[in-house]
Design a protein around this nucleic acid. Structure first.
Length: 203
DNA sequence: CCCTGATTCGC
DNA sequence: GCGAATCAGG
């Protein structure tokens, strides 16, 4: 494979979108993440987002230059979602091991709830007594989600479903999973409850 | 272990 | 110019 203009453009686009080199490499195909990084450097766009092409008095601190507004107001609207029904809350918190491996692509908590696709969002973590923080983190992370389809999921992509499976507006988080877990950090936070207020199971 | 980008250097 | 190997870090 060679760096055609199209490929370079896609590279630039994705790089500036904040995609990682490996993700870009996968997307392009035929190249490794090293190739991507190498190209990125040769193109001279190593510091993405921080558009400092022409001799600009580079900012001394580098943090999140490409993030204009994002003030996590803990009291602004951590409001998750109104639960339509008591439904199924989170995931099996079990002990520690949620029966990890299943070669099935469908390892997600996808509920086949027959909800009248109107506006309720059943598969969400439904606000329980989970840390409002964790919930806020989830809604925040969903913006950065890779929005993968079922087939795009791998052993290392977060399998948290977002949206209504009955509509087109459905996808999987897809962010890097927490090693050993089926979800990314944010979703692990809501999926595995600290096992409190969970004793309704009086077997 | 998984991942990230950065650099080097033979090709 | 290219990218594998390596480095440095999370």
């Amino acid at each position: 494979m060679s760096w055609t203009e199209e490929r370079v453009e896609l590279l630039k686009k994705m790089w500036n979108e904040g995609q990682s080199a490996s993700q870009i490499a996968k997307e392009l195909g035929g190249v490794t993440r090293n190739a991507v990084i190498g190209k990125v450097h040769r193109l001279g766009l190593s510091n993405r987002g921080a558009a400092t092409p022409a001799g600009n008095p580079a900012p001394k601190s580098e943090e999140k230059p490409a993030k204009p507004a994002e003030a996590p107001r803990p009291e602004a609207q951590p409001a998750p979602e109104p639960q339509p029904e008591p439904a199924e809350p989170a995931e099996p918190a079990m002990a520690e091991a949620p029966a990890a491996e299943m070669d099935e692509p469908a390892t997600a908590p996808a509920r086949k709830t027959i909800v009248p696709a109107g506006q309720p969002l059943p598969p969400q973590p439904s606000a329980n007594e989970i840390s409002p923080e964790a919930l806020a983190k989830v809604s925040e992370v969903e913006k950065k989600a890779r929005k993968l389809t079922l087939m795009e999921l791998t052993e290392r992509t977060c399998k948290w479903p977002v949206g209504d499976p009955a509509t087109e507006d459905f996808w999987f988080c897809g962010l890097p999973v927490q090693p050993g877990k089926p979800y990314c950090e944010a979703h692990v936070g809501v999926a595995f409850q600290p096992m409190s207020s969970r004793r309704d199971r009086r077997r």
